[in-house]
């Protein structure tokens, strides 16, 4: 339950590239082939470990349709990390990356870590965007890059965790102002002395069984 840091992520990208599936695969470890369009934003959370520290990820999954674009913009400011997703079997989703990136850069804080993700890597036969193209785009814009498959779970863990590592490193370097919650980073309650009284209040055992 306790964590050293809490990072807020958002997942962005065109509609149908598999944003919700990536989130579901990461938080629930399952794949849902049929999914309705995301209306507005959905939420998921998971605990990971980096450098021996517990880090809680809170992930907001946005709607990709144009109609929700202005709503999505409201989420950039408060996010520490963003997964920008395209579909390797649909070239147009790759072509739209520039627009997404402009939007993100304009509305987010400048330290937000952006991970570029080419999803659906399991559909090799229908591939329209080469891996090298994704790498080149990421290199050109200073993003981290990965190809994933929400279906087979390939690289999904890595995508979320590597983003967290990058944020963690930036914190260590002192780039992030961790006391400003608008950056999407929170320090865990275990760092505050009041936490010590919590487990001793007689619910320690129940709490251990209740979480997760």
């Amino acid at each position: 339950m306790s964590y050293a840091y809490l990072f807020k992520y958002i997942i962005i990208g065109d509609t149908g590239v598999g944003k919700s599936c990536l989130l579901l695969q990461f938080t629930d470890k399952r794949f849902q082939p049929v999914h309705d369009l995301t209306i507005g934003v959905e939420f998921g959370a998971r605990m990971i470990t980096i450098d021996g520290k517990q880090i809680k990820l809170q992930i907001w999954d946005t709607a990709g349709q144009e109609a929700f674009r202005s709503i999505t913009r409201s989420y950039y400011r408060g996010a520490a990390g963003a997964l920008l997703v395209y579909d390797i079997t649909r070239r147009e989703t790759f072509n739209h990356l520039t627009t997404w990136l402009e939007d993100a850069r304009q509305h987010s804080n400048s330290n937000m870590v952006i991970m570029l993700i080419g999803n659906k890597s399991d559909l090799e036969t229908r591939r329209e965007v080469k891996k090298e193209e994704g790498e080149a785009f990421a290199h050109e814009h200073g993003l981290i890059f990965m190809e994933t498959s929400a279906k087979t779970a390939a690289n999904v863990e890595e995508a979320f965790i590597n983003t967290a590592k990058e944020i963690y490193e930036k914190i260590q370097e002192g780039v992030f102002d961790i006391n400003n919650e608008a950056n999407g980073i929170k320090i865990g309650p275990q760092h505050s002395p009041t936490n010590a009284s919590l487990p001793s209040s007689g619910q320690g055992a129940g709490q251990g069984g209740g979480c997760c």
Partner: peptide, 11 residues
């Protein structure tokens, strides 16, 4: 619902 989610997102 959309405003609710943004407001929640903003801590």
């Amino acid at each position: 619902a959309n405003i609710q989610k943004i407001v929640a997102f903003e801590n």
